[in-house]
Design a binder for these strands. Sequence first.
DNA 1: CCAACGGTTGCAAACGTTTGCAATGAAGCT
DNA 2: AGCTTCATTGCAAACGTTTGCAACCGTTGG
Lengths: 343, 343
Amino acid sequence: MTPDRRSPRLKDVAEAAGVHISTASRALNERTAALLNPATLERVRETADGLGYRVNGMARALKTRRSMSIGMVVPDITNPFFPPVVRGAEDVLDRAGYSLLLSSSDNDLGRARRQTAAMLEGQADGLLLAMARRDDPLVAELRAGGTPLVLVNRTIDRGGVSAVIPDDFHGALEAVEHLYALGHRRLAFVGGPLSTSNGARRRASFDETVQRLGLPEVAALEAVAFDEQAGYAAAQTLLAEHPRITGVVAGNDLIAVGIIVAAAERGRNCPRDISVVGFNDMLLAGRLQPPLTTIRIPQYDVGTRAAELLMALVADPARSPETVLISGELVVRGSTAPPPASD
Amino acid sequence: MTPDRRSPRLKDVAEAAGVHISTASRALNERTAALLNPATLERVRETADGLGYRVNGMARALKTRRSMSIGMVVPDITNPFFPPVVRGAEDVLDRAGYSLLLSSSDNDLGRARRQTAAMLEGQADGLLLAMARRDDPLVAELRAGGTPLVLVNRTIDRGGVSAVIPDDFHGALEAVEHLYALGHRRLAFVGGPLSTSNGARRRASFDETVQRLGLPEVAALEAVAFDEQAGYAAAQTLLAEHPRITGVVAGNDLIAVGIIVAAAERGRNCPRDISVVGFNDMLLAGRLQPPLTTIRIPQYDVGTRAAELLMALVADPARSPETVLISGELVVRGSTAPPPASD
DNA sequence: CCAACGGTTGCAAACGTTTGCAATGAAGCT
DNA sequence: AGCTTCATTGCAAACGTTTGCAACCGTTGG
């Protein structure tokens, strides 16, 4: 009954406008529109609007070999660190006309592999990878495949690939020095997994700094993940085995929260009995009980810089890899204080 | 020098395996693999692996008219409410073999329109919309366009479209009754924008419930957004104009935080002088100062249910619209207490 | 008046798949 | 032996664009 044609194709608008399909194509394409007679251009555009024409991105992508989409994989979008970086990336991609394909890998290599494969099948023009481990085989594969790639937040040990990461070394150093300045001398580090660059680098920085400061009694533990639960578990061990510790620098804010909770359960109040400094300054970190002293990483900027770098890489695949370090700054709030007087 | 062929096409694996391209296609497709002789099937698959063949999703999508991707637009991924729902959606889509295109609209209709248009040009098979306003013209357009659609978190007034939303009415009712049970009699509501379904419904529920309870002195304000800053601003007015209020139900947790901060600045401590109950139970709500009493909405489930509904809709576009209400439950923590004794 | 030219437009060949249909050959049945 | 049936594979036509090339036309300069 109804004509009920599916959505109009280029051919339809060409016919309706009385021009050849290639002319219609050129009219609807910014880059080629200049070739046309202004009058025809106008006419084609109007009939296209009238018909509610919408270009078929698949056909276009097939022909042009560009999907105008970028894939991004994070460990878990639910971790408060990532939304701002995703948002940053999204904003610059959006401005560049790209769409963002997002997925969470849960730190599962197999899952990440499937997800990136799907993204590449979908012809993503580039990848933003925020889940890399230091020896990640996946990024090696991907790099070999020639996909424009930028690592976010975490990088790999052997370089050769672009990355945008926080200045882990400087951050952890600031954290230690802050505690030292407050008078703490027995410090601990409860970091994230050493298999990640930020776990390892923050740890290395802690080690070096406490040694330089000549601190007598230190401990360093590795939480199994960058989350509250892992921080809580690691803190259990720490508090049991090193009861004299008064200051701890945490692998990130979530781990810090876990430590504070574990301490409270043992009757040790933060910051009265024990000080802890987080890392990242995640959303609401300043509204927690106690408000977290932490190393602020401009998360949004991490996202924008990474996306900008990727855009440059997409434009020029031969561009040589570079890694940009985003520096953080100490923001002191309520979770740190001088050590107990008895000390 | 190097043969340097671009990535292999179906034709390449077909030739390498000594079969026709159509046979190769069938071999690489789960659905059609059964048609083939097991021996050829095996052979084709092995040579495909050997060559590192990866199907061109664009070509496939062009032919099949399915991109196996779903678009999702949220107001702002940075709002802690959304990451869990995105994650929920992602998980079920992933299992169904779909990818997720994400974008943040910032409650800007124009931006949302551009984003959905881009998603549709990219041939997204369906849309998850979490940014709808009650009279949103965009969802009307989209629905007219025949795109499989499900609204998330917010719905429109005139039905006709599937949606997965929290049970706003019941939630707000529980919040009011909780305060009432604690002894509060002078209540206020600081809700989100009335242009959103959850802003309006929570407000309506508040109004009806306080009336039913016969409360003598109430106030109801509208924050301009569901964030801390808007909550803070609205609270300024509230505290100035209705100083005798002792209990307030907030439009969501972020607004609650804003209220608590504003109250503190006026020397009114929560919960000693004023009680506030939030909505959603966002991440870390229980770790705030004070820990938030709130209506817990299972955010992850909202995402999964929405994605499931959308998958059903994609499979059968004629399926009639349905709206599923996700119910919340009161979780009482530290931000509510009996009103001051002087009361 | 002719040739060259620039501005517009049309032509047709891709891009890499999927899939209805036809062809082939082997096996089963009467 | 001849006919049917079935399993397997090949053929070729799409899917909706983009784009190098050629053609056309009215101008312009010599």
